[in-house]
Simulated assay, not measured.
Amino acid sequence: MPRLALLALALALPSVPAVAQTVTGEQAAALLFAPAPAEVEINGQGVLAKDEASMLAMVAKDQPYYAAIAISPDEGLMSEATIAAANHHTIEAATAVALGECNAKKTGAADCVIVAVVRPEGWEARPLQLSMSATEDFANYAGGALAISAATGAWGIGASADEAVAACAAKQETATDCAVAIAN
């Protein structure tokens, strides 16, 4: 996707939740899910055939959490409008990106729908959620700060809050909403 389109998409995601509140590294360690395995929930009733739902479940299990897969109901699963948005910090963020990109690519009249989500095994709502990659990188957290972008799934670790925000923003050009999620 061209950079301007990505920037426009990032700016058009007001429904993506921002970082709720900063927690300490010790609190984060207690809140985060294991980096693997992930579970897939198929939501394709009425949109996907049974064989498509089975195939999608097999493919989706390899996506890093949090992920959402959107399709254009008029075009079906095997179209260019099908989008998997993966490695976000929440299902809501992945859903917003997948729907936004799918609706931008679809040629049919109906709005895109989410047919699958990927989240950590045993998922339950928690005050802090990180993408699978950020959760893996948290193993390197020895203090300082970790910042995340709710809109893009980017993250960064630094010795200070400013360094963490800069590291987050450097990961993705459209990560203009980086905020500190973990700090000691």
Score class of each variant (00 low, 15 high):
residue 99 L to S: 11
residue 159 A to N: 14
residue 70 A to K: 11
residue 115 V to M: 00
residue 155 W to K: 05
residue 184 N to G: 12
residue 41 E to V: 01
residue 16 V to P: 04
residue 120 P to C: 04
residue 176 T to K: 13
residue 179 A to I: 03
residue 55 M to E: 14
residue 33 F to I: 07
residue 90 T to M: 09
residue 79 S to L: 01
residue 147 A to V: 01
residue 20 A to V: 06
residue 91 I to G: 11
residue 156 G to W: 08
residue 93 A to H: 10
residue 122 G to H: 11
residue 154 A to R: 09
residue 162 D to T: 07
residue 149 S to F: 01
residue 173 E to R: 14
residue 66 Y to E: 05
residue 90 T to C: 03
residue 138 F to D: 02
residue 95 T to A: 10
residue 95 T to R: 15
residue 114 I to V: 15
residue 92 E to Q: 15
residue 9 L to G: 08
residue 167 A to D: 11
residue 148 I to N: 12
residue 34 A to F: 05
residue 71 I to N: 09
residue 125 A to Y: 09
residue 163 E to F: 01
residue 184 N to I: 01
residue 135 T to I: 09
residue 59 V to D: 14
residue 105 K to G: 00
residue 182 I to R: 11
residue 152 T to K: 11
residue 27 Q to L: 02
residue 123 W to L: 01
residue 131 S to W: 07
residue 52 E to Q: 15
residue 31 L to S: 01
residue 46 G to H: 08
residue 141 Y to G: 03
residue 95 T to H: 09
residue 146 L to I: 11
residue 100 G to C: 07
residue 75 E to I: 06
residue 134 A to C: 04
residue 45 Q to Y: 01
residue 98 A to H: 11
residue 88 H to C: 00
residue 17 P to Y: 06
residue 153 G to V: 04
residue 61 K to Q: 15
residue 85 A to F: 03
residue 3 R to E: 13
residue 170 A to L: 05
residue 139 A to E: 14
residue 50 K to Y: 01
residue 22 T to H: 05
residue 8 A to K: 14
residue 121 E to N: 12
residue 68 A to H: 04
residue 126 R to K: 15
residue 74 D to E: 01
residue 138 F to I: 07
residue 134 A to H: 12
residue 81 A to R: 10
residue 22 T to Q: 13
residue 7 L to I: 10
residue 104 A to E: 13
residue 12 A to S: 15
residue 100 G to F: 07
residue 103 N to D: 15
residue 52 E to C: 02
residue 35 P to R: 09
residue 155 W to C: 07
residue 143 G to P: 04
residue 28 A to S: 10
residue 141 Y to K: 07
residue 172 Q to R: 13
residue 53 A to P: 12
residue 65 Y to H: 11
residue 104 A to K: 14
residue 18 A to F: 09
residue 175 A to I: 03
residue 52 E to T: 00
residue 33 F to H: 13
residue 75 E to A: 06
residue 103 N to C: 04
residue 105 K to H: 02
residue 82 T to A: 13
residue 129 Q to M: 09
residue 129 Q to A: 10
residue 67 A to M: 06
residue 5 A to D: 14
residue 159 A to P: 04
residue 88 H to Q: 10
residue 25 G to E: 10
residue 83 I to R: 13
residue 5 A to I: 05
residue 38 A to Q: 14
residue 46 G to T: 00
residue 13 L to C: 04
residue 140 N to V: 02
residue 84 A to Q: 14
residue 34 A to K: 12
residue 49 A to H: 08
residue 92 E to C: 00
residue 44 G to H: 00
residue 111 D to Y: 07
residue 76 G to W: 02
residue 58 M to K: 15
residue 122 G to F: 05
residue 128 L to Q: 06
residue 113 V to W: 01
residue 135 T to Y: 02
residue 69 I to W: 02
residue 110 A to V: 03
residue 156 G to V: 03
residue 73 P to R: 11
residue 10 A to T: 04
residue 177 D to I: 00
residue 130 L to H: 09
residue 113 V to T: 10
residue 73 P to L: 05
residue 24 T to W: 09
residue 139 A to N: 11
residue 47 V to C: 06
